[in-house]
Design a protein around this nucleic acid. Structure first.
Length: 474
RNA sequence: GCUGAUAUAGUGUAGGGGCCAAUCAUGCCGGCCUUUCACGCCGGCGACUGGGGUUCAAAUCCCCAUAUCAGCACCA
């Protein structure tokens, strides 16, 4: 796998990077990109990797999400060296908020958001901006004391009200939220741009890699760095990544789970890490895909195809092989001797041994595999003539020379013993296939196996003699 | 509307004035290998958004157009 471009401004002590999700739901592929790109550089240069839980919006924080998040981090396998919760740091934010007010870099604003927006859009200051520092500090004190209801007051950074970019004009850094927070008792909440600057500085973050949706925030945050006399880290903003074929929006996922449309956060129609793990995708494959995509600012479409190729490279050398027959029909093979087929569990690694499949005169096969052929070879067994009469097929033994099979262009097809077999449901986002598989699959729960000629699949559950598998990729 | 960014094969990516009739991966097609799946190997297909300009020389620098994306929240 090719690496990423070198970072500038790296000294001998390495880098300090951060991954900063907010606990509003489980992590998905979009998060994986940020997590792995930052992780790459920490591995490359050494240093620290801070996991910062950005739980400063009580309306979007649910207690169970903290755990979901930590679970996902573990699955990703990134080198987190320390974890901080922003909800533990409100006193720090308040201190610096006060400082910004004291030095006149911020002011308390009681305009309602709509009228402020109108003023801002026409490059006009609001009356609150002219207040004295003393007034600001007094209102700040009353704000912290809980004297103002939600929506009536905010603290703004003084920028240039006539800045050509409307996004820069006097943005907000504190607000009042009247909603319980699962971890703390607070009324005044810092806005992201404030808490992020303070934390990045105090935690010593040297480089930030994040999506381009934050590019305006980077410019806004520069005002705070300037007021506090701090130097910002080095930023890189990657482009938007659209991910097709799966549901990503937290609200849509929640609704779907509630209505029963999805089975849970790991439903394979979702783009969560839990879902792709369930589909047999390994974290290393996701990592390789994300590093391959890199930090470019171009907007891209996420390629499942490329991810599957990465996953195959990981899973192919170690996955045991088994036969799976979809929509099986039982067939007698005339004149065939009883015999036992021996097949390597993994042809790459003979030490893994064999599986044995017993043939006693009849077998299960998929009709579609017989259609249009006058001869087939049952893999690891023998060749058979096929006579098609209407919708029925009759089979007749015709030797076990592989050479014959090749000469006659007989397809090599999978089969399942009549005496020992297991019902197997193979699920994919497109639907389900019912079939039979070898008994050996019973011991493969949670493993990725290769159903020969079908593809790789993760054995999701084994219940008695029933197996449920999730299709990963060909 | 304002501000900012981006544009290389189906997809992702390299290349930042001459070494580019453009890299690598993936995909697709054909062949080989093979105690049969998958892998691997060999060959092929396929791209610099458009128009100007600068230059001896432009995928690369500049301008314009077009397209796409992001921000303009008391979310992150």
């Amino acid at each position: 796998m090719r690496g990423l471009r070198a970072l500038k401004n790296v000294d001998g002590t390495g880098v300090v990077m951060r991954f900063a999700p907010n606990p509003s739901g489980p992590l998905h592929l979009g998060h994986a990109r940020a997590a792995y790109l930052n992780d790459y550089y920490v591995r490359q240069y050494g240093g620290r990797y801070v996991l910062r839980i950005e739980d400063t919006d009580p309306r979007r924080v649910e207690p169970e999400n903290y755990e979901l998040l930590l679970d996902d981090i573990k699955w990703l396998g990134i080198n987190i060296t320390e974890t901080v919760f922003q909800s533990d740091r409100f006193d720090i934010y308040y201190d610096y908020g006060q400082k910004l007010l004291e030095i006149g870099g911020a002011y308390v604003c009681t305009c309602d958001s709509e009228s402020f927006r109108e003023l801002k859009n026409s490059k006009k200051t609001c009356p609150c901006r002219q207040q004295s520092i003393e007034t600001n500090l007094d209102m700040w004190k009353r704000m912290l004391a809980g004297e103002f209801p939600e929506g009536t007051i905010t603290v703004r950074i003084k920028t240039e009200i006539d800045h050509p970019d409307p996004a820069m004009r006097d943005f907000s850094i504190f607000r009042v939220v009247d909603h319980p927070h699962p971890k703390i008792d607070a009324k005044v909440y810092p806005m992201m741009n404030l808490s992020v600057v303070i934390d990045d500085h105090l935690l010593g973050v040297t480089h930030v890699i994040r999506g381009k949706d934050h590019i305006a925030n980077t410019r806004r945050q520069q005002y705070i760095y300037d007021y506090l006399g701090w130097l910002p880290p080095e930023y890189h903003h990657y482009g938007r990544m659209s991910i097709g074929d799966v549901v990503l929006s937290t609200s849509a996922m929640k609704e779907g789970i509630k209505s029963g449309e999805y089975t849970g956060w790991d439903d394979i129609h979702l783009g969560t890490l839990k879902a792709i793990a369930r589909r047999g995708i390994k974290p290393e494959a996701v990592r390789n895909s994300m590093i391959d995509i890199g930090v470019g600012q171009t907007d891209i479409k996420f390629s499942w195809e490329n991810l599957f190729a990465e996953n195959k490279a990981i899973v192919d050398p170690v996955s045991n092989r088994y036969f799976f027959v979809a929509n099986p029909v039982k067939c007698v093979v005339e004149d065939a001797p009883s015999m036992t087929a021996k097949a390597l569990l993994n042809p790459n690694d003979e030490s893994k041994g064999f599986r044995e499949l017993e043939f006693d005169g009849s077998l299960y096969v998929c009709k579609d595999d017989l259609k249009g052929f006058s001869m087939v070879r049952f893999k690891d067994l023998f060749n058979a003539e096929v006579v098609e009469t209407g919708d029925e097929y009759s089979l007749k033994f015709c030797g076990n020379s592989l050479e014959d099979a090749r000469k006659n262009k007989a397809p090599i097809i999978q089969w399942i013993p009549v005496r020992s077999n297991v019902r197997c449901t193979l699920l994919s986002p497109e639907g389900r296939i019912e079939g039979l598989c070898e008994e050996g699959v019973l011991s493969e729960e949670d493993n990725v196996v290769q159903f020969e000629r079908v593809g790789f699949a993760r054995i999701d559950s084994v219940k008695g003699k029933n197996v449920t598998a999730y299709y990963a990729h060909h």
